[in-house]
Amino acid sequence: NLRWTSEAKTKLKNIPFFARSQAKARIEQLARQAEQDIVTPELVEQARLEFG
């Protein structure tokens, strides 16, 4: 299971509600691909840039 830093959680809250669950799934996918067990603000930002 993935842990989220408080900064990453804050960044996730800045994503519009309607896109948040999809973004969260993508962020967690990116973390797993990078073999990380902690979601960082950088991963959230990477996903945000993908979504535009």
Rank of each mutant, 00 (worst) to 15 (best):
I15D: 03
R20K: 04
Q36H: 08
Q46V: 09
E45C: 07
V39P: 00
E45D: 13
P41K: 08
L2F: 05
Q36R: 11
I27W: 02
Q22T: 10
A25V: 10
V44F: 07
A31T: 06
R32G: 04
T40I: 03
G52Q: 14
T10Y: 09
E35W: 08
A31F: 01
L30G: 01
W4E: 01
F17I: 15
G52F: 15
I38Y: 09
A19Q: 14
L49Y: 09
R48E: 09
I15M: 08
E35F: 14
E42H: 05
I38R: 05
R48Y: 15
L43P: 00
T5A: 05
G52I: 15
Q22F: 09
K11D: 05
L30R: 04
Q33D: 13
E28S: 02
R20T: 04
V39N: 00
E42A: 08
L30Q: 03
P16R: 04
I38G: 02
I15F: 15
Q22C: 14
L30M: 10
N14A: 10
K24R: 11
A19F: 14
E35I: 05
A31K: 00
T5N: 05
V44A: 02
R3P: 08
L30V: 04
E50C: 09
T40P: 02
L49G: 07
I27C: 12
F18D: 04
E7F: 02
L12C: 04
S21Y: 08
F17N: 14
E50F: 07
K13M: 14
W4Q: 01
A47F: 15
I27E: 00
I38F: 10
P41I: 12
F51D: 04
F51N: 05
K13Y: 10
L30N: 02
E42D: 12
F17M: 14
L43V: 04
D37Y: 13
L30D: 01
T40L: 04
E35R: 14
D37P: 09
A25F: 08
K24P: 01
P16V: 03
N1F: 10
R20I: 04
A8G: 02
T5Y: 02
E50Y: 07
F18M: 07
A23W: 10
W4H: 00
R32N: 05
F17A: 15
V44S: 01
K13G: 13
S21C: 14
F17Q: 15
V39C: 01
A31R: 01
F18E: 11
F51Y: 11
Q22K: 13
W4K: 00
N14Q: 11
A34Y: 13
I27A: 15
Q33V: 08
A8W: 00
E7K: 09
A19I: 14
I15Y: 10
N1V: 09
K11A: 15
E45Y: 05
S6T: 12
F51R: 06
I27V: 10
S21L: 13
K13A: 13
S21I: 13
K9N: 07
V39Q: 00
L2G: 01
N1C: 11
P41S: 10
L49N: 08
A31Y: 01
R3H: 12
S21H: 11
E42S: 06
S6D: 15
T5G: 03
D37L: 12
G52K: 12
K13S: 11
G52N: 13
A8D: 01
A47T: 05
Q22L: 13
T5E: 05
A31G: 02
A23I: 15
L2T: 03
I38V: 12
N1R: 13
E28A: 04
S6M: 12
T5V: 03
S6E: 15
L12G: 01
A34C: 09
L43K: 02
Q36D: 04
L43T: 03
E35D: 12
T10C: 14
F18Q: 07
N14C: 15
L2M: 10
A23Y: 09
A23F: 10
Q29V: 08
E42I: 05
L30E: 02
F18C: 15
Q33C: 10
A19L: 14
R32C: 05
T40F: 03
T5F: 02
T40H: 03
A8E: 00
L2R: 02
Q36W: 07
A23E: 03
E28G: 02
T40E: 03
P16E: 04
Q46D: 04
A47P: 01
R48M: 15
F17Y: 10
R48H: 09
T10Q: 15
E45W: 05
E45P: 01
A23G: 02
L43F: 09
L2P: 06
Q36A: 11
K9L: 15
A34K: 12
G52S: 14
F51C: 11
A19G: 09
D37K: 11
R32W: 05
E50H: 09
Q22D: 08
L43M: 12
L49W: 08
F51H: 07
I38T: 10
N1G: 13
N14G: 08
E28P: 00
A8F: 00
L49H: 09
R48W: 15
Q36Y: 10
E42L: 06
W4M: 01
Q29Y: 09
L43R: 02
K24N: 02
I15L: 08
R3L: 12
R32Q: 08
A8M: 01
K24C: 05
V39M: 01
A23R: 03
V44R: 00
P16L: 03
I38N: 04
E42N: 08
D37I: 11
V44M: 05
L12K: 01
Q29C: 07
R26M: 11
R3E: 09
K24G: 02
S21Q: 11
R20D: 03
L43Q: 03
A47M: 07
Q29S: 08
E45H: 05
E7H: 04
K11C: 10
S6H: 13
Q33L: 12
P41Y: 05
A19T: 09
L2D: 01
L2K: 02
L12F: 14
N14H: 10
T10R: 14
R48A: 13
V44T: 01
A47K: 01
K9G: 03
A34N: 14
K9A: 10
E28Q: 04
F17L: 15
A34V: 08
I27P: 00
T5L: 06
Q36M: 14
A25K: 13
F17T: 15
K11E: 08
S6A: 14
Q36K: 11
P41A: 14
L49I: 11
T10I: 14
N1I: 11
I38D: 03
K13Q: 13
L12D: 01
R26V: 08
E45V: 06
K11Q: 12
L30Y: 07
A34L: 15
A25M: 10
E35H: 14
I27F: 01
F17W: 14
K24H: 05
D37N: 12
Q33W: 10
A8C: 03
Q22A: 13
I15Q: 02
L43H: 06
L12V: 04
R48S: 10
Q33I: 12
R3F: 13
G52L: 15
W4R: 00
R48F: 14
T10F: 09
R48L: 15
A25P: 02
Q29G: 06
L49F: 09
S21A: 15
N14P: 01
E35C: 13
L30H: 03
R48K: 09
A31V: 04
E35K: 14
D37C: 09
V39R: 00
N14F: 08
R32M: 09
F51I: 11
Q22G: 08
L12E: 01
R20P: 02
F18P: 15
A25S: 09
T10L: 13
R26N: 04
